[in-house]
């Protein structure tokens, strides 16, 4: 067996195991950690396909940023896993339909060679070819409008997140000494006069 094939099967085995543990793990933090492992291994598989830019960005964006925030939330929420599992059997038919659909789609894509979907086979690139340069060139020439559109959508997302959580400017609690010196005890303190009550 070629070394590359061995690496592929090794990474795939870890990937399948980690993905299974994501859905079967009882502890949500462990599930999130297995998802991190799955992302990391997937980036290794992509690296084998010579997509080094995508592989590194997967680690940088998903492992380095998204999953950290995900872990933050999962750790701070009080998740009761047993209550989450209550509806398992009633949701199973819907879930299995979606799963079957996904399997069908994936087999269409992965069996592309068999169904004659691809126009030509992917050519191997030389090691010196820079993935980043190629992607950058395409992104800023042929696909510049979709790219700009995607960035605007992201910007709207940022603005929306702030708009949803912004609660107005905080009241300033600093005191002004010039007003403070004019304060009199009478303004702040009211002395109540209560007649003594007779004991029963």
């Amino acid at each position: 067996m070629e070394f590359k094939t061995f690496v592929f099967y090794f990474l795939s085995a870890i990937l399948v195991f980690a993905s299974l543990r994501v859905v079967t793990s009882r502890n949500p933090v462990h599930a999130a950690l297995f998802l991190v492992l799955a992302f990391f291994t997937a980036s290794g598989v992509w690296m084998l396909l010579q997509a080094e830019f995508l592989a590194i960005s997967l680690v940088l964006v998903y492992v380095g940023a998204v999953m950290v925030l995900f872990l933050f939330v999962v750790m701070m929420l009080d998740i009761n896993i047993d209550r989450l599992r209550e509806g398992f059997w009633s949701y199973l038919p819907l879930g299995s339909i979606i799963a079957l659909l996904m399997v069908a789609e994936m087999s269409l894509v992965l069996g592309g060679n068999y169904f004659d979907l691809f126009e030509k086979s992917v050519s191997q690139t030389a090691a010196s070819d820079s993935n980043v340069k190629a992607i950058g060139r395409l992104m800023f020439t042929d696909y510049v409008y979709p790219f700009e559109l995607a960035s605007v959508v992201l910007l709207v997302g940022i603005v929306a997140a702030i708009a949803l959580t912004y609660r107005g400017k905080k009241e300033n609690k600093a005191v002004s000494p010039s007003q403070q010196v004019f304060v009199k005890a009478k303004d702040r303190l009211r002395v109540l006069q209560m007649p003594a009550e007779k004991r029963d």
Binding site: F53, I56, S57, L60, G64, V68, F72, S130, V132
Partner: peptide, 25 residues
């Protein structure tokens, strides 16, 4: 000698934050 070595370093060093969150939790 990787072409995207700076990107690789940024990706790898961003994993270090897990040590901190996980140890705290």
């Amino acid at each position: 000698n990787v072409n995207a070595s700076l990107l690789y370093i940024m990706a790898i060093t961003s994993i270090g934050v897990y040590g901190i969150i996980l140890s705290g939790w």
